[in-house]
Design a protein around this nucleic acid. Structure first.
Length: 723
RNA sequence: GCGCCCGUAGCUCAGCUGGAUAGAGCGUCAGACUCCGGAUCUGAAGGCCGUGGGUUCGAAUCCCGCCGGGCGCACCA
């Protein structure tokens, strides 16, 4: 029986005993794991609070319960300790045998679909390490939910019509030629030529190979130049309005080459840029960046199911429908006077969450008739929950096309976007008649939005909209998975400045704080690909220095695994509502409380069995041999590792409930630490006492399997063959 | 002003629904097997868990006040 079931069975036994002995009505009983093995494996502290009610000493209560309870067979004995803790000791041999024979495989999800939205990087520049926190947390959530048996759909929302994309387009069309040329690292030349050069940097395949001199890196250079220009020259903002207008009007299927040609001609002749061509360029910018982001995330083993595009939400009238629903529900009103005159606002005054606000209204439609981001997000959220419906009940839906197929060799291997089979990644389009056979997107029973904490307010508004539209349960099931931002330590900022030769112009006050906020607009940040490269190079060096004469190929694969392990663990181990102050030294550490420490434990354990097979012809303990361990005497230290291995289900459940994956990271770290200690105290290979050697093999077999599953399937951290 | 979050060892952080001696890592100091990889392990030093109250048999954990820091309260996303 798995530990989780033993736990509930024992809890039920206690509840029954309380019912029988004290005429209580089936009280709710929870068991915990006591701090040390000498105190047992499960504990019930419930006698203590009952003492007052029952007017008996807690020890007496615990004794009565202990005697009356019908314990499941896995409970070997019970003990009363301290002021009245009821401690349960499990049958160790039986548990060990069970862990060796039960398969770790989880049943394929058959329940209601859960939608997880994460990554969501503005497609106007390269991803930085802050985006990695989002993607890694989102990905671990997805892995945990799937592990618990839920079907999950992963969406990466693409804001392809926003101001940020427009700004890059403004840059290419209006920044002085020499600035564009410097971003492109070419000689200054005509706008026409620069435009062509810019477009030629667009990724060619569906998803390019990751690189730090990619299209998104080019945009990373251009974007801050534009925002700086806005500050110097407010008139420059007029160009932004022009581009946004063009984007809104759409490009009507214009060919990109043709668009670039007409833009070039317009520049050469001094004519205004044609609207459709501007819109087409904006689409290319968003699309190009999106593909680069997918490539970056692929390195970390992160893949997706759907790429919903904001442009399609607009084109398909999602907002129009949501607007009607909100109007019919009386949730919004048009202001005729005051500061919001001419706007459609959602009143939040009646909602307790907003009651204390100065201005409890949120503008959804601006006075110029355009929709705010929050408005669009309401429509999108309704769609995700399957609630955006026509009056006759049919779902308002996107059109879909295949974007790419991807696969992963192992659960934590890099995602590869080649081939015609594997996981299907779809993107939305604006023709609802185009569907992918056998696929339904959206319509989730539950929705997680992985978005940083600074967007808590708009997220609350979105949720409130779902509620007032008559779906309070759905609102409760739409969850904002919020996390704090990633910032840079002043030391990290200085290092970047030294390395790039740039100066971010931060004053002394800013540099004296414990961290500095990243800013894409100002170009302050550590690019994800760049950092992964540094990590990988560092790992490669470490691998090479240890390889010795057996240093054969595969160094790149190992280095990648170690880099990903270090990064993912760094993101996972810190609790989510704490600012992560990024420091190079800390992030590049491979010793101590790090990903590589965990990986090393798995590699080391696997190595035992490789050597064992080679020298003694013995491998891991298989099911048949496991039976012989039923009655084995297992010392406390070995048993501690076994019991800890049995707790995965409990820990994963807790992590998902609290959205606190530091619990999972710490659990894995615990296991690794326990193993490393035992490694020294319980050698396997040189042990000639056969039953003893078998017991150690058995315990380490459980560990190797558990650790690999924890790292690769749940944390997405690959276990290399060698380190 | 209102709301949310953070304050735990010199530094960076864990501590789940209150539970049995507050845990890691880094750093410091002292050590480790001719034996499964030293990215390891052992030991030492280092904490009125920001502060003052309260609830409780029991509080780092829950409630209230205060202090310090961060974020949010846009016709930006």
């Amino acid at each position: 029986m798995p530990l989780q079931e033993i736990r509930t069975a024992a809890a039920r036994a206690i509840s029954d005993a309380l019912t029988g002995s004290f005429e209580m009505e089936r009280p709710h009983v929870t068991l915990e794991v006591p701090p040390g093995r000498h105190l047992g494996d499960l504990a019930w502290p419930g006698a203590l609070p009952l003492a007052k009610v029952l007017r008996q000493s807690p020890r007496r209560i615990a004794e009565t319960v202990a005697a009356a309870a019908q314990w499941p067979p896995e409970v070997a004995r019970v003990e009363i300790a301290g002021p009245g803790f009821l401690n349960l000791f499990l049958d160790r041999g039986r548990m060990l045998a069970h862990l060796l024979t039960s398969s770790a495989a989880q049943p394929e999800g058959a329940g209601d679909k859960i939608v997880v939205e994460h990554t969501n990087i503005n497609p106007n520049k390269a991803a930085h390490i802050g985006h990695l926190r989002n993607a890694v947390l989102g990905d671990i959530l997805v892995r945990c939910l799937r592990h618990l048996g839920h079907p999950v759909e992963v969406q990466d929302y693409i804001d392809d019509t926003g101001v940020q994309v427009a700004d890059v387009v403004v840059g290419v069309l209006y920044l002085p030629e020499q600035e564009i040329a410097s971003a492109l690292a070419t000689e200054p030349s005509s706008r026409e030529e620069l435009l062509a050069a810019f477009v030629s940097r667009l990724p060619s395949g569906p998803v390019p190979a990751p690189s730090t001199s990619d299209f998104d890196d080019l945009c990373w250079e251009i974007y801050p130049k534009v925002t700086a220009r806005y500050e110097d020259d407010p008139d420059f903002l007029g160009h932004r309005a022009e581009v946004l207008h063009a984007v809104e009007a759409g490009h009507d299927g214009l060919d990109l080459d043709e668009a670039v040609f007409t833009l070039g001609r317009a520049a050469a002749s001094g004519h205004p840029y044609p609207q459709r061509a501007i819109a087409r360029l904006a689409t290319a910018v968003a699309d190009g960046n999106m593909r680069c982001h997918l490539a970056t995330m692929a390195r970390l083993g992160i893949g997706y199911d759907l790429l919903p595009h904001e442009s399609d939400i607009l084109a398909l009238g999602f907002w129009r429908r949501a607007f009607e629903l909100l109007k019919d529900a009386g949730a919004i009103r048009k202001e005729t006077e005051g500061k919001n005159a001419g706007c459609w606002v959602m009143s939040l005054a009646s909602s307790p969450a907003f009651a204390d606000m100065d201005d409890p209204d949120k503008i959804l439609v601006r006075s110029n008739g355009t929709v705010t981001y929050t408005g669009k997000d309401i429509a999108y959220q309704l769609w995700k929950l399957g609630l955006l419906r026509e009056p006759d009940g049919t779902r308002h839906d996107f059109g879909y096309t295949l974007f790419a197929h991807w696969r992963q060799e192992t659960p934590a291997a890099p995602v590869e976007y080649c081939g015609r089979s594997g996981h299907l990644l779809a993107r939305t389009n604006s023709d609802p008649s185009r569907q992918i056979y056998g696929r339904e997107y959206g319509n989730g029973r539950q929705v997680y939005n992985v978005i940083d904490v600074r967007q808590s307010y708009p997220q609350k508004v979105v949720r409130e909209a779902v509620r007032v539209l008559g779906h309070p349960e759905a609102a409760d099931r739409s969850i904002h998975f919020s996390y704090e931002m990633v910032a840079l330590t002043p030391a990290a900022v200085r290092l970047i400045e030294a390395r790039t030769g740039l100066s971010f112009g931060l004053d002394e006050e800013a540099m004296s704080k414990s961290y500095v906020e990243m800013s894409g607009r100002r170009g302050i940040g550590v690019k994800a690909d760049e950092f992964l490269d540094v990590l990988t190079a560092q790992a490669e060096e470490a691998v090479a220095s240890r390889a010795g004469e057996e240093g054969t190929g595969g160094t790149a694969v190992r280095a990648r695994a170690i880099a990903v392990g270090a990064l993912r663990y760094l993101m996972a181990r810190q609790s989510r509502n704490r600012v992560l102050a990024f420091d190079f030294d800390e992030a590049l550490a491979f010793e101590g409380d790090t990903g590589p420490y965990l990986q090393y434990s798995a590699v080391r354990a696997a190595k035992i069995f490789a050597k064992l097979t080679e020298r003694r012809g013995e491998g891991m303990v298989e099911a048949a041999e496991a039976e012989t361990l039923q009655n084995a005497e297992i010392p406390d230290d070995l048993w501690g590792l076994v019991l800890e291995c049995a707790r995965r289900r409990e820990i994963v459940g807790q992590a998902v409930d609290t959205l606190e994956f530091s619990l999972l990271a710490q659990h894995a770290h615990n296991l690794a630490q326990l193993f490393h200690k035992l490694y020294h105290a319980h050698p396997v290979l040189p042990e000639d006492n056969e039953p003893l050697r078998r017991l150690r093999r058995a315990v380490f077999t459980v560990f190797v399997r558990e650790m690999r599953s924890l790292l690769e399937e749940l944390l997405g951290i690959p276990v290399p063959e060698e380190m």
